[in-house]
Amino acid sequence: MTGSTGDFAGRRIVITGGARGLGAAFVTALAEAGARVCFGDVLHDAGAALAQQLAVQGHDVGYLPLDLARPESVSAFVEAASQRMGGIDGLVNNAAITNSGGRLAGELPVQTWDAVLDVNVRGTWLMCVAAQRWLRESGRGAIVNIASDTALWGAPRLLAYVASKGAVIAMTHSLAREFGAEDITVNAIAPGLTEVEATAYVPGDRHAYYLEGRALRRPQTPADVTGPVLFLLSGAARFVTGQLLPVNGGFVMN
């Protein structure tokens, strides 16, 4: 294996939440780098359209339905994706829901808390476990969990989401130690507020707060996040595991 971040020819990558936003950016960037990609989402029309668009361009990309709130859907998705590609070399756990935005902690319905944690935390765990066998057999397995810098600075009025992303970060550390014995790397990216469809609901003052607080004074785009994700999936990062990489233009610094 080379140490290059461009060694994706034939690599088999699974991505959750790939129909739009950051997920679609990951799907596209990996396909353009030569990887074989299978992605899942609950947004069936958007997922099928993206897969078709990339297939027309000559890329090996497939879409399969996936609902992280349903454990049986996770199992079926991983089985179908592994069969389609003949295995799995990398997993990007990108899918997540917010649902709690704008509410104070005491205003959160229990049902909302449970829904966010079910998808963002339980769903990520189930995906890692379901893909573990295939990643082990790959001999170069890599997992990248998409967290959020909201868990690093404690964004208010977003408690369920922040708690879920904090759990993803902690889970990344633990899984890295467990999966390391099988030569599977597990890392996390913590993006800042990114200009995508899913953040259109975010109030303008929160966007301004991020913009003013960044060392790099510009909006964050999906292209700012794809490079770090590809690096952590690549051969250049084979001895990097259990790490959290904030990607937010210097809004939060380690």
Rank of each mutant, 00 (worst) to 15 (best):
V196L: 08
N94E: 05
E137T: 13
V92T: 02
P191Y: 01
A200I: 10
A163P: 02
N93R: 09
V92F: 02
V129I: 11
A147D: 05
V144A: 04
Q111N: 14
N99T: 10
D205I: 11
V144Q: 04
A190Q: 03
A96Q: 02
A131V: 07
I143K: 07
M171Q: 14
D114N: 14
A190V: 03
A130Q: 09
M127W: 08
R177P: 08
Q111H: 13
A115R: 15
S138P: 07
V121Y: 00
G102Q: 13
N120H: 09
D149L: 00
A200M: 12
G166P: 06
G101H: 11
Y209I: 05
L108F: 08
L193F: 00
G101L: 13
R140W: 14
T98C: 13
N145I: 05
N99M: 14
A142T: 06
R133I: 06
V202A: 10
M171P: 10
I143E: 04
T199N: 13
I189W: 00
M127A: 11
R206D: 14
F179N: 01
M127P: 09
R122N: 14
E137L: 15
A142R: 07
D118I: 05
G90E: 03
V119G: 04
P156V: 06
N145Y: 05
G141A: 09
N99H: 14
W113Q: 10
L175V: 10
V202D: 06
I143Y: 05
P156Q: 11
G90W: 01
F179A: 04
D149C: 06
S138V: 07
V92A: 02
G141W: 03
A155D: 08
E195L: 11
R133W: 05
L175D: 06
L152M: 13
N94S: 09
R206I: 15
D114K: 14
Y201P: 11
I189D: 01
R136F: 07
L117D: 00
T112D: 13
R177C: 12
V202R: 05
I184M: 08
G204V: 07
P203N: 12
W134Y: 15
I143A: 07
A167W: 00
I146R: 02
Y210Q: 03
A170R: 13
A142S: 15
N120F: 03
L135E: 06
S164M: 09
I146F: 07
S100H: 06
Q132P: 00
N94Q: 09
H173T: 12
P203H: 12
K165Q: 04
P191R: 04
D89Q: 11
A188C: 11
L126K: 05
P203K: 12
L135C: 10
I97S: 04
M127G: 10
I88A: 07
E107N: 12
G123D: 03
D149Y: 00
L104E: 15
G141R: 06
H207K: 14
L126P: 03
N187P: 08
A167L: 06
V119W: 01
A198F: 07
G154C: 08
L175G: 07
A147Y: 01
N94D: 08
A142Q: 10
W125M: 13
A167E: 03
E178P: 06
S138A: 11
P109E: 11
S148K: 01
A160V: 07
V196R: 02
V162G: 01
I184H: 03
N93V: 05
K165I: 00
I97T: 13
R136Y: 09
Q111V: 14
